[in-house]
Design a binder for these strands. Sequence first.
DNA 1: TTGTACGCGTTATCAA
DNA 2: TTGATAACGCGTACAA
Lengths: 343, 343
Amino acid sequence: MENTKKTTIHDIAEKLNVTASTVSRALKGNPRISDSTKKAVLKTARELNYEPNHIASALRSGRTQLIGMLVPTINRSFFSSIIRGVEEVANSLDYRVIVSQSNEVLDNEENAVKAFLNARVDGIIASIGKNTQQFDHYKQVLERGLPLILFDRTTPHLQTGQVVIDDYQGAYLATTHLLEQGCRKIAHFTTERKIDIYKERYRGYLNALQDYQVKPNEALVFSGNLQLEDGRAHTKALLRKGEAFDGIFSASDYAAMGAMQVLKENGLKIPEDVALVGFLNEPFTSFTDPPLTTVNQFPIEMGHTAANLFFHALNAEKKKIVPKKTVIQPELIIRASSLKKKP
Amino acid sequence: MENTKKTTIHDIAEKLNVTASTVSRALKGNPRISDSTKKAVLKTARELNYEPNHIASALRSGRTQLIGMLVPTINRSFFSSIIRGVEEVANSLDYRVIVSQSNEVLDNEENAVKAFLNARVDGIIASIGKNTQQFDHYKQVLERGLPLILFDRTTPHLQTGQVVIDDYQGAYLATTHLLEQGCRKIAHFTTERKIDIYKERYRGYLNALQDYQVKPNEALVFSGNLQLEDGRAHTKALLRKGEAFDGIFSASDYAAMGAMQVLKENGLKIPEDVALVGFLNEPFTSFTDPPLTTVNQFPIEMGHTAANLFFHALNAEKKKIVPKKTVIQPELIIRASSLKKKP
DNA sequence: TTGTACGCGTTATCAA
DNA sequence: TTGATAACGCGTACAA
């Protein structure tokens, strides 16, 4: 039961009457080693149940095989799926992932990055906080020459690898779809914050209207926090104002859900009276009644891409490769909430 | 931009004309040190921007401040919430969490544990795979004297700390609630697998019936995988058989959702014709129409508890404290899907 | 192809 | 209270 002493390369060396260096080389596949000793080493390593000590190796080599991953909230489908994606790629390359969450608080963000650096991670994959306007902690990462990959919530203030989805395109697809279903008075739920992704979604919405010769109506655009309650409030406001509308494109599934509730409470039919499209592809969207049309951001693939960029940067490092920005194309998932014309 | 040389305790020592040992002691709050030198050390540490090297410390002390956390699936609300809970406690104690997922495959499970051990984690918090019947990899953890905490999916084959919810009680509450709403012919969706938690839920269901003098009817119990499709199939089977039923207690929200769909498709009213209760408190349950009554397992709290048990075991370690099993009491979240009697 | 020798940064032990 | 020294386990110039 007790902490049986772990075997080290020295134990193997002793048993074979060679030195630890030889064993180290044999285990690492160093070419400057004879086949016979290599075989012997591997054999006794198995026999003695040798497991390499990553810590010692890390201290010596400066590589921990650890990736620090920072997300705003671990338990949100979008983010946990991205973690999943990163973990899949990382594990396949014998890397491990440390996760931390910022809860959108700058202080936590800074502490997490610092903790990652202290843990001597080989690099960081992060999504920056909603309100973060200060990027020194990230700059430090870059100054140390460590790979830093940003996903979803990125910033032009950092010259580094990024993965985002094409928010403009997602919004354009969503709005176009509503237009093709015959909607002409389409409301939009968005947020005031200065995050690029919402600006892009708004732009996609406007451009789609334009392309269908529909004049934008500011009275149909609502800003809030894009939560369920906001969606409810916006929809109630719409109904109260008596402003005619036949479709809603919400930049978030939650606000779309709020709209669905209020519309139903008021006896309006979805999609006949009002067609509804959300954004995020939250798991619940397929379970609403009617199921909610939404935009898939492919979070697992996003995780894969982020990890791939990471390893790309890790291997390039010194060669100062130009930071890549990868844009993932979203997909419109059409469900009953927007299908006026049966196909 | 280049990898500026990190300052070490030696740099501080040199500057102050003391030895590294003194600096180390000062930084670690060792009592055998004068206040003046301690202050001086801390001051120059700040000046030189000193950051401790966890790796070196880990190699020397044998403690990495890392927890290996193994879950079946990272991107499932229940599990990601538990990860969140563990992370919160761990971070507050300056520990980091490495996550891996098994995807319910024994092989992945073994590899993950092995990887954790190689990374020299200070211990492991895990939920075992659905089909895992072989626990040698976990026994190895215990044999090395490392803390191992199991949550949700546990096993009597391992003598170690565990956190589970009281599945029996959750099921009992759910079924009792249906009975109090006037249901007398209550169907149950479960799974054949030999996992304790589903057996317990079944037991809770039976005992509740018994306590209300309702004779159990085997024709109302269905086994499957508890996914949406299973719930749909079970409900269709119920309707086809013509077996009368006025309530369903599903051991999973997904199967309950399937039931809701089929009932609505057949023009049955929820809860008037059939009252519905699920289990898990998946996020989508509050968004269904009607919202689904379900059982909350308090996953974040579960994570907190698991982490607390972990640190308890870590600090006890040699003293061979008896492995604790913590049972969390679930809560019935009553929503419209089961509320026949308006309160 | 293998061995020698040293260092990565920290901490534990012993001595002063 | 502080210093000197060694050691944690591994990797890598350099030499042989």
